[in-house]
Design a protein around this nucleic acid. Structure first.
Lengths: 232, 232
DNA sequence: CGCAGTTTTGATTCATCTCAATTTGTGTGG
DNA sequence: CCACACAAATTGAGATGAATCAAAACTGCG
């Protein structure tokens, strides 16, 4: 049996944007694991769907959001190439959010039952799985921090710095990028209204921290952004 | 070897306030697992400590908080008997919060390496472990929802209803309880200032939803609270 | 190439914060 | 057991950051 590291299941070819202790594993290569194309605007799963797999982004960009009781959407996360989403489903056995592609994308499906079985037999795979879950917990705590105690400016600064770091790890420019999501989606993610997001972006531009051209962002002064984030 | 369900490690005697598919497992009983008394105001661990175990509350009440950069504390969670905390440590190998007892308490220490080893050999234990991690993710998402899109009144209502549900599961009254934490800690958890917490509590009282006597809360109108929570 | 969806910007309102004073409760030592 | 001191909670008044409502400008999709 061929030994296939997890990363190879997510990334098309040899590349490994994410550094993590990768498990040697074989079953995936054969097993029901599939790849799936999802076009912009289409969904990988809907809130309420039965949970069976987590997803790795091979290419493209996703949002996972939760349409709560009364129409208002809450975006729980954005995911780019090499990142994994769908973990919110594990608890209840159903996804509690809807995953929507923000651009034409490719997904690797990682059936959870299979992952569990493999983790059972392979300590490295187990570590990998726990790392994935732990990363999600850490990520969520960071967001709680943001939402619980930061101003609109700090939230936006943190958001942009976080995006920048993630882009850079994937080999893109840290300072020039294209937002795939609308102001409304950013706002939902950060607990702000779209007008506020727009205003703060304009403010940052006026302060000389950013260049903003609709969805094109260029970070002019990273240190400045960081100090906005830390201020107070 | 005696077969000991996980719950028995957390609860002193036979009782099982939490319903979950419990693993049959033995190693714990013998292994390095320990119990620990923590007095009110003392800590189970500090932010930055090396992560080695997660904790089950056998009795008492804990808060886990994160003193970010500039003095301002952010409370990430409150934990009562039968609940498990310390999971934030798994990701980085260090706890990123400080766990403080809000009353004299007893903790069960669950060494994580041991749990992983056991999960490796015992599918039921593995399921248990994943359930613990998944529950934390679900919990965090709920809090993100709160913080991202709810008013002060809705947050307080959700908080009280959540406490009530948790108390009831442990065999306490759903409508009469004693808050172990200060208004400031509640506020930090909910992304509000202590004065706001106090005001909203007073408002609820005036509306006839609650009786408030400092830390004694009696929920007079659960349905009313629920409708506050859902309103809009 | 036109139009719907998105973004920007302005004016105003409102919820929550901040600052401040008072009351109430709690733990400690005489 | 009482009294004192300190911490926690309540309440008020005013300031403020973000939301809301509204209009105009942009733009990229079909």
């Amino acid at each position: 049996m061929a030994v296939v590291p997890l990363k190879a299941l997510i990334y098309p070819s040899g590349e490994s944007p994410i550094s993590s202790p990768l498990a040697d594993l074989d079953a995936f290569a054969n097993a029901g694991l599939g790849w799936r194309r999802v076009k912009r605007g289409e969904t990988a799963y809907l809130a309420g769907d039965k949970f069976n797999a987590i997803y790795g982004v091979r290419s493209g960009f996703f949002k996972v959001g939760n349409v709560a009781a009364m129409g208002r959407e809450q975006v729980m996360g954005f995911f780019m190439r090499g990142e994994i989403f769908g973990l919110e489903g594990i608890g209840a056995g159903r996804y509690d959010g809807t995953a929507t592609a923000l651009e034409d994308s490719e997904l690797a499906m990682l059936p959870f039952a299979l992952m569990e079985r493999m983790a059972q037999e392979n300590p490295a795979m187990q570590r990998e799985l726990h790392a994935i879950l732990a990363r999600e917990i850490t990520r969520d705590h960071g967001i709680m921090m943001l939402l619980g105690s930061m101003t609109a400016e700090q939230r936006l600064a943190a958001f942009l710095l976080n995006l920048s770091r993630r882009f850079v790890r994937r080999g893109y420019s840290p300072s020039e990028f294209h937002l795939r999501m609308t102001r409304e989606e950013i706002g939902s993610y950060l607990g702000l209204k779209l007008e506020t997001v727009s205003r703060v972006l304009s403010l940052f531009q006026k302060k000389g921290l950013l260049g903003v051209q609709q969805k094109h962002i260029s970070i002019v002064d990273i240190a400045g952004l960081e100090s906005v984030y830390r201020q107070r």
